[in-house]
Design a protein around this nucleic acid. Structure first.
Lengths: 345, 345
DNA sequence: CTGTTAGCGCCTTCAC
DNA sequence: GTGAAGGCGCTAACAG
């Protein structure tokens, strides 16, 4: 059996609560130096390790944060997770990671589970379209922060990026290069991130005087498979797009596969701007022009926000933090007319 | 306050232990159907959620697994982590993820921390060169499984890949293509994975009748920066390598950067086989010939092993599981003479 | 400055 | 079949 406060107390001839005060309370003032030193020595001698489970139970504080994300193997979320874990660790918190696989039922289960286990707070990249678990958290006064995705009809602490303006800018950039058939490979339409990008995309088209074409908005999930199928569909259109804006680290993988199969030459026959965070993008056959995220910053800010909330329970205000994406111009976009010329050589 | 067993008991006019038996014990036999139904109805009505913290404390069983890895944002570990988390979840366990950043001190701290929090078992990709925490775990009879890396002088449950033979085969493959100046960009030399790959590399050279050249064994960490510096060094040698074998998802990123800067043409001027698990590799300027890992399988097997250990505490045997890496032939390797000819066109 | 008391929510043993 | 008692390890109140 591990040594307990009782063991130390017995050996020192004092009461367990005295030992507790010395080893866990920072009200240093109230205890005589003599006993303090004696207790600390005995604790060291017996290699006392506090039973954190008992403390958590007693204190109603687990020093644990729950992180709920769709998929830790996606570099977007793994990058954020790393930052969240490190910030948490520095603040003395452990991190429980949960993959929902974009399944809201699983998300609901996970939240309940984590609450029952007494996490001090949660960071959630929600699967969206259901917020009852968040209402429940609020009612129970359990702090949480949304990351990447949020609810427009439900104010909550959140960290997200400039989805609308980045998509808007992407369209304008492509239009400056004379593109008018610009497709958007969006991903899951339910996600706020995607809705905002779509809005930015549509407003971008409008600002450039380009008519919307519903055919050019494709895809319904974030998988490589969906990216592949959607891209094949787009490339098979009577009037295929000359430029592509893609959402998500996986979709672009599928898109590249389809493009390879169709033997489309990048960027001459197709310009691409991709939302992606992979480190390999500069070294691709056609180095992708990308919109990437400040992943460390996002994670860090989410933890800061959550810890603030945990330590100021009476504070009812919510904070929304928008971070700036990074546009990296590389070789996957080029001017349309030039391209066509190249094509005819 | 959340409803407790007591609340239900009071409302039903029974003793809390009865409620406990109904809601948490599977000895279904001993309770009358009438009270059972009544209790279940009241539990539902009051939305009873067990305080898992109290249960864990009482039962000395947290239904939690600790995962200690160098870096969750590395796709090798994030791929494994995803699999581990999903397998754990299916078995009713939560997963606490910890990044050591290849720092053994942090690893030691994390293990102590997780033990104090009462995790039921650990999965560890160790930073190596210190096993005292593992001895401690064994003494405390806390199950653990090593993943990817293990200790040759210390038998323990472990899941790893065929490092030696895969490196051996890589050298033979390159030698068949007439390469003799084969460099090994290894990563952290302390890691068992790397030592085995080095052994395979050296034995491969020997089997091919190629003399070892210490200059061709380069690198000392798994970072992109180190891969970059080491590659620059190799390319600056009086007699530079004609082929490269690289370890780890990050090193190759740095290597590619250096290669680009040196304006080296792949594969004509340099053949590469890379240990990497990134999904983008097929779409690179020069699609990399890779050795990748069955990440899902590795995670799943580690969890299976750990759960077996957790459920059979008296079983003192250890199990080592070796999984097969996947060799994917792509375009980053070619025959040396052919290359030289191409070069002279 | 330190001891005493009580209890967090749950489960297990022992009664009846 | 169900109730009563006791305690996991720790800490917060209240004494003195």
């Amino acid at each position: 059996m591990a040594t307990t406060l009782r063991d130390i107390a017995r050996k020192a001839g004092v009461h367990p609560s005295t030992v507790s005060r010395i080893l866990h309370n920072n009200q240093t003032v109230k205890i005589s130096d003599a006993t303090r030193k004696r207790i600390l020595a005995i604790a060291k001698e017996l290699d006392y390790q506090p039973n954190e489970l008992a403390r958590a139970f007693r204190l109603r504080k687990t020093q644990t944060i729950g992180l709920i994300i769709p998929d830790i193997s996606n570099s977007f979320f793994s990058g954020i997770s790393r930052s969240i874990e490190m910030s948490s660790y520095n603040a003395g918190y452990n991190l429980v990671v949960c993959n929902t696989n974009e399944n809201i039922e699983k998300e609901l289960k996970y939240v309940r589970n984590l609450v029952n286990r007494g996490v001090d707070g949660l960071i959630i990249a929600t699967c969206q379209n259901n917020e009852k678990h968040l209402l429940d958290l609020r009612e129970k006064k359990i702090p949480f922060v949304l990351i990447d995705r949020y609810f427009s009809n439900f104010k909550a602490n959140a960290v997200f990026s400039d989805n609308k303006s980045s998509a808007f800018d992407a369209v304008k950039t492509l239009h400056k290069l004379k593109h008018e058939r610009i497709a958007f490979l969006r991903g899951r339409p339910e996600i706020s991130t995607i809705q905002l990008r779509l809005q930015g995309y549509l407003e971008g088209l409008a600002a450039c005087g380009i008519a919307q074409d519903p055919e050019l908005i494709a895809g319904k999930s974030f998988t490589a498979e969906d990216g592949y199928e959607a891209t094949k569909m787009l490339l098979s259109l009577a009037s295929p797009p000359t430029a592509l804006l893609t959402s998500g680290n996986r979709i672009i993988i599928g898109a590249l596969k389809a493009i390879k199969e169709f033997n489309i030459k990048l960027p001459d026959e197709l310009s691409i701007i991709a939302y992606t965070d992979d480190l390999f993008t500069p070294f691709l056959a056609c180095p992708l022009t990308t919109i990437s995220h400040p992943l460390s910053e996002m994670g860090q800010k989410a933890v800061d926000l959550l810890l603030h909330e945990i330590n100021n329970t009476n504070d009812n205000a919510t904070t929304q933090i928008e971070v700036k994406t990074i546009f990296s111009m590389r070789e996957s976009i080029c001017e349309l007319t030039t391209c066509r010329k190249t094509e005819n050589v």
